[in-house]
Amino acid sequence: MLTRHIFSQLVREIESQAVAAQQQIGLVRAQIASKQREVRLAQLTRSEISSLPPDTPVYEGVGKMFVGLPAPELQNKLGASVKDIETEVEGLNKRLHYLETTAKNSQEHIEKMLKGGQA
Results as ranks from 00 to 15, higher is better:
67 V>E: 05
81 S>G: 15
73 E>G: 04
68 G>F: 00
119 A>H: 11
73 E>F: 03
79 G>W: 05
94 K>T: 08
74 L>Q: 11
87 T>Q: 15
101 T>N: 09
82 V>K: 10
99 L>C: 02
111 E>P: 00
82 V>S: 10
104 K>N: 06
113 M>N: 02
96 L>W: 01
115 K>F: 09
86 E>V: 12
89 V>Q: 07
77 K>T: 13
86 E>P: 04
113 M>R: 03
94 K>A: 07
83 K>P: 00
80 A>F: 07
80 A>R: 15
94 K>M: 03
95 R>G: 01
115 K>D: 10
67 V>T: 05
98 Y>I: 01
75 Q>R: 13
107 Q>T: 03
106 S>I: 02
75 Q>W: 00
104 K>V: 00
103 A>Q: 12
71 A>H: 10
100 E>W: 03
116 G>C: 08
67 V>F: 04
82 V>F: 09
98 Y>G: 02
78 L>H: 14
98 Y>C: 01
89 V>G: 13
118 Q>A: 15
91 G>A: 03
111 E>A: 11
85 I>N: 11
113 M>A: 04
86 E>M: 12
89 V>F: 07
88 E>C: 09
107 Q>G: 03
87 T>A: 14
83 K>Q: 12
75 Q>V: 11
106 S>C: 10
80 A>Y: 13
79 G>N: 12
85 I>E: 06
113 M>K: 05
83 K>R: 12
74 L>P: 03
83 K>A: 14
79 G>M: 09
88 E>W: 09
81 S>M: 12
67 V>I: 10
73 E>K: 07
119 A>F: 08
96 L>K: 02
73 E>Q: 08
106 S>N: 11
95 R>E: 04
78 L>F: 11
117 G>D: 04
80 A>C: 03
104 K>T: 01
93 N>M: 06
71 A>L: 10
90 E>N: 14
117 G>E: 08
106 S>M: 05
83 K>Y: 08
92 L>G: 05
94 K>W: 00
86 E>Y: 11
92 L>M: 09
84 D>L: 14
117 G>F: 07
68 G>D: 09
76 N>E: 13
72 P>V: 07
108 E>Y: 01
114 L>R: 15
74 L>C: 08
108 E>D: 05
102 T>L: 04
